[in-house]
Design a protein around this nucleic acid. Sequence first.
DNA 1: CACACTTACGATATTCGTAAGGATT
DNA 2: AATCCTTACGAATATCGTAAGTGTG
Lengths: 301, 301
Amino acid sequence: MTVKQLRAFLAVARTLSFTQACEHLHLSQPALSLAIKGLEESLGGRLLIRSTRSVRLTPEGESLVPLAKRLIAEWDNTEELLRQRFTLQLGRLAVATMPSFASNLLPPALRVFRQRHPKVNVTVHDVINEQVIEMVRARQVELGLVFEPEATGSLSFAPLFRDRFVAVVPAESRLAERPSLDWATLMTRDFIALQRPSMVRRLLEQALEGRGLVLPATFECHQLATVGRMVSSGLGVSAVPSLCIDQMQELGAVCVPLEDPVVERDVGVLTWNRHELSVAAVALHRVLAETIQTPGLSPRC
Amino acid sequence: MTVKQLRAFLAVARTLSFTQACEHLHLSQPALSLAIKGLEESLGGRLLIRSTRSVRLTPEGESLVPLAKRLIAEWDNTEELLRQRFTLQLGRLAVATMPSFASNLLPPALRVFRQRHPKVNVTVHDVINEQVIEMVRARQVELGLVFEPEATGSLSFAPLFRDRFVAVVPAESRLAERPSLDWATLMTRDFIALQRPSMVRRLLEQALEGRGLVLPATFECHQLATVGRMVSSGLGVSAVPSLCIDQMQELGAVCVPLEDPVVERDVGVLTWNRHELSVAAVALHRVLAETIQTPGLSPRC
DNA sequence: CACACTTACGATATTCGTAAGGATT
DNA sequence: AATCCTTACGAATATCGTAAGTGTG
């Protein structure tokens, strides 16, 4: 029994005429005859009574009609679903992202993606960096947006841009006018740090440790937005990845290049394996690579 | 997309190996490769990641697995169902029969049928002769067991045997010793008739009308079993189709050939159209033709 | 006799298996 | 080097369409 045969049978059952069914099927009468004959032989009995002048269904044929209808309908649905999924006319995609990326670079990228593929559903998990890695590893998401991990293991990391930490100071501070700052200078002020566990916090600690410096966390909080507000309120200074520059400036803080040491790290896309991504995931990855450019310092007002 | 391709895909998805899948499918590796390739092309994307050393599913492939499983399972079920129906390993059959046939000739025929085709479900509607014809015409049943109707219309009637009415008299009656009876003699006694509407009653009335005789219904009842009991109790005499002989004798009445006029009529199978019967219906028709012989008078004890 | 399905047959397409090729462990 | 999938190619099979055949209304 083949799909073609079932379709042929249904067409004949509907029209009760081989000739008419032929047109629907784009097939010649003899070919249709053979198809029906083949179906009947494969099932072991007659489905249609063909007296040269009329076509009718046998009871067995009659019982096959609803079954065949169902079968063909589900067949077509499945075929169409997969086809849509491949052409991104339909689909679901789950990504995980660290908070700093989620609130800065991701939204515009998603906007572009949405414009290109309006039917694809996207779920964004904004969790801390380590959890992103876990979610990719557990295959809960196809893509993860993270700082490059130390050990990728079975995962693969594709960098999007190199992120460099910048100082965040109150607009009223004298530091805000400097063209650049070094860590020693920055740390003469009260420092507002993210609480552990946080990748940003860890990157800072690791970088300073190499230079014999200690992070003096006068204030600690969870959210970058809070850091920005605290700085702009004059409570102290901080240092954040450059991908947060826009957010910090919107919150009223000023970002200044930070050196000695320069703390930098790749930000990119983490996947289980690049080769077995869904079409939707590949498309989003492409959009990310296209839309994201290294965040830099815009001229201060 | 074809059934073969889906089966091939499922086999590879299960084993995650083309080589192993080949054995299950009885196919060579290259043929399998081409089948998968064809499926992927027809759907417009890759379902499997083949690195020379390992085979894995793409997310789209993964999403296809449960759909394909369902599809193939239903496909096989449908195919098997029809095949069983054709080989009478399964099936349903509805027949209608007039009461006299139901309680006399049908049971042994059904026994044989059941023995040959134990999996076929048979529904027997035992209703009056006219209703049998209606049920066949309405296609509620495939076969009807009736006296030959006056007008078959679009139905076709195939006779099984020619039935001749016999007299039914009490065992103690002097009439019981006669080798045969005529109607005039029989009607000197009280007559026990079936109530209208009844084919048996109608046949009698029609036959006697032609001879200027009138049916003197002293007693009337619905069931043939009651007629038998009433006769054997000495309440009177009756006349029944020969297919009821055994039943009457079991009830203690005596059957005697009846003449002048001889009332006879074909009993047979009524169908909508012989050519579009189910395999099961044809089989039962065949069993009926084989097992049923014209009921006659066995030697009295 | 005209219409509708079936059979016959040659052409085309598809599918299959064998053999060679390529890549990874 | 061994294993596993892919590509190449010739052969077998299946399917299709044209043309002739057959039976019914």
